[in-house]
């Protein structure tokens, strides 16, 4: 849009149950504490049930639409490869792309009615120069559980977007269940160092 504004838009795309919502919550809470106007939106069909899920986080001095327009995302973080590719039309030409090198087969693929494309990473790297590919699932498993892959990816995203200079630790401590805080802090730190 020719209309000038300072809104930054971040899209998290994944599969129901991957924890995109918690990651978006931590991100938007931190941005709120930084003093930005923030809007966040969750988009999913028929509850979750293994379908595609996207979380939209936007911040700036004034945010209007809570939903990111096509071609309007400054950063796209794909929690699953196919979902990253599905949401690519949202990424700005010069936008930052972060991809979890993970395949989760949708039902049509599981039952043999469709093929999981073999060239997802090639298509992503061809489209977005400097695309960051992470094995967040495997790295998180090494920390103890793949369930913290969401916070690991968030760590990478925050580093790539130069949002490091903020006490994210406090936000994580406030939003994550006490029993899981430590592991999430580890995952967050690891994500930052990998980015």
């Amino acid at each position: 849009m020719a209309h000038k504004r300072d809104t930054t838009s971040i899209m998290l795309a994944g599969v129901g149950g991957q924890g995109t919502i918690l990651a978006a919550k931590v991100l938007s809470e931190g941005l709120t504490r930084m003093g930005y106007d923030v809007k966040m939106s969750e988009i999913h069909g028929m509850s979750q049930r293994g379908g595609s899920v996207t979380s939209h986080v936007r911040f700036g001095s004034r945010v209007d639409s809570p939903v990111i327009p096509l071609g309007g995302a400054d950063c796209l973080c794909g929690f699953e490869k196919l979902e990253a590719l599905r949401c690519l039309p949202y990424l700005k030409q010069e936008g930052v792309l972060i991809v979890n090198d993970l395949e989760i087969y949708p039902l049509p693929v599981l039952i043999g009615a469709a093929e999981y494309p073999q060239d997802v990473l090639q298509r992503l790297t061809r489209e977005a120069e400097g695309c960051l590919i992470l094995d967040a699932h495997g790295e998180a498993e090494q920390l103890g559980t793949s369930r913290v892959e969401n916070i690991l990816l968030l760590g990478a995203l925050i580093h790539r977007l130069d949002l490091d200079g903020f006490p994210w630790k406090e936000v994580l401590q406030d939003l994550v269940k006490p029993a899981f805080v430590e592991m999430n802090l580890e995952a967050f730190a690891l994500g930052r160092s990998l980015a």
């Binding site: 028929m46 049930r49 595609s52 071609g71 690519l88 990424l91 949708p106």
Partner: peptide
Amino acid sequence: ILGDSPLTIRSASEGLPPRPPALC
């Protein structure tokens, strides 16, 4: 009316298998 130029939208996402919700 606005005279804005259209955004370039990437088209690399065509023909992907859908991910419909499923029984858990």
